[in-house]
Design a protein around this nucleic acid. Structure first.
Length: 335
DNA sequence: TCGCCTTGGATTACGGCGCT
DNA sequence: AGCGCCGTAATCCAAGGCGA
């Protein structure tokens, strides 16, 4: 089943390849009659130009690379959907990779992407990229792409475009809501502090407490790797404390799940025994009608914005880089 | 083993033709 | 001479074939 090429169409229509190409790309430059014939043949033969050949000829690729840390996380699923929506409209193809949040895989993936000569890259860095040499190596890889890069979700301080949520602010707001509702025994499950996002979230949390003159016991601050398992384990420990918190703030989908698993296993529930404030909506809780409050991050929007920013950068490579900050509202269901 | 075609499919600069 | 229309040929890059 050999593919139909522009040459075939030219032959059938009795014109040259150039004319077929013009019908496709500059129709006004072709006589009405000729154009009609060519278009008819194109339709009959169901011809579509080869993207590879077009890329070769135009010296530019039409694929953009995307590296996500965890594609099985619904948050990044939504992000990807937003990206593809915008890419489709701009005749770009998304080539998506999963890094499993590993720096090693990150760098390997960047090489593969380089081999593919992509037009641009949207990149969610694995965490954490704190060491200077690591960031240097990373930057070298990004430069080697010779294509614009948009960093997403995690600001690791590189001078490139980026799209982020205002995690510090939204966590501050959420904590303030909790305090205003009269709570003082507030616990948090967050990531370890070498992670940029975890730091920002912790900062917002602490600031709100400080402003209200509230101090919480050290044991209420539970920091680990954002996984279900660690959240589960830390919650189990928390439940042994003599004085229990009234609110637990969980800083991502998985920590919310781990937290819920632990308390339900212990015969406790929300919102009866603990209130829960979650960063990100957990669809299942809404479906089950279990009241919790959450910071609603619009992941779809983030994906869209990142792709738009990349396309913009492709069009205007020389403008100075820009960071887009997306605000995320607090949805109050209990407290 | 080394350089030198050729191949794949599309785009486009350039120039030729016929006509006013 | 200038314009509209169209064809020729060069070009993009990587990989494979070929002769030296």
């Amino acid at each position: 089943m050999s593919n139909i090429t522009i040459k075939d169409i030219a032959q059938y229509a009795g014109v040259s390849k150039a004319t077929v190409s013009r019908v496709l790309n500059h129709p006004q430059a072709v006589d009405d009659k000729t154009r009609a014939i060519v278009q008819k043949v194109i339709k009959e033969k169901n011809y579509r130009p080869s993207v590879t050949a077009r890329n070769l000829s135009k010296r530019k690729s039409s694929t953009v690379g995307v590296i996500l840390p965890k594609v099985d996380n619904v948050f990044f699923g939504e992000v990807l959907r937003g990206m593809i929506h915008v890419a489709d409209k701009n005749e770009l193809t998304v080539m998506c990779f999963n890094s499993d949040d590993s720096k090693k895989k990150d760098l390997q993936t960047l090489e593969i992407i380089e081999d593919h000569r992509v037009r641009g890259l949207i990149y969610v860095p694995a965490v954490p990229y704190e060491k200077k040499e690591e960031r240097k190596a990373l930057n070298k890889h990004l430069k080697a792409l010779d294509a614009p890069v948009v960093i997403m979700d995690r600001d690791i301080g590189l001078p490139v475009d980026g799209v982020f949520f205002d995690d510090s602010k939204s966590m501050y707001n959420a904590t303030k809501y909790v305090i205003d509702a009269g709570h003082t025994k507030i616990a948090i499950i967050n990531g370890t502090q070498e992670r940029v996002l975890a730091r920002q979230r912790q900062e917002g949390f602490s600031r709100a407490l400080e402003e209200a003159g509230i101090t919480v016991p050290e044991e209420y601050i539970m920091l680990d790797d954002y996984s279900i398992q660690s959240a589960y384990r830390m919650t189990k420990n928390m439940m042994k404390l003599p004085v229990q918190p009234t609110v637990v703030i969980t800083c991502n989908n998985d920590t919310t799940k781990g937290f819920l698993e632990a308390i339900y296993e212990g015969g406790k529930s929300i919102p009866k025994d603990y209130q829960n404030v979650s960063l990100d909506k957990l669809e299942m809780l809404n479906i089950l009608g279990i009241p919790y409050s959450y910071i609603e991050r619009d992941a779809y929007q983030m994906g869209k914005k990142a792709m738009e920013q990349l396309i913009n950068r492709i069009a205007f490579p020389d403008k100075s880089y820009r960071h887009i900050i997306i605000e995320s509202p607090f949805i109050k269901q209990s407290l």
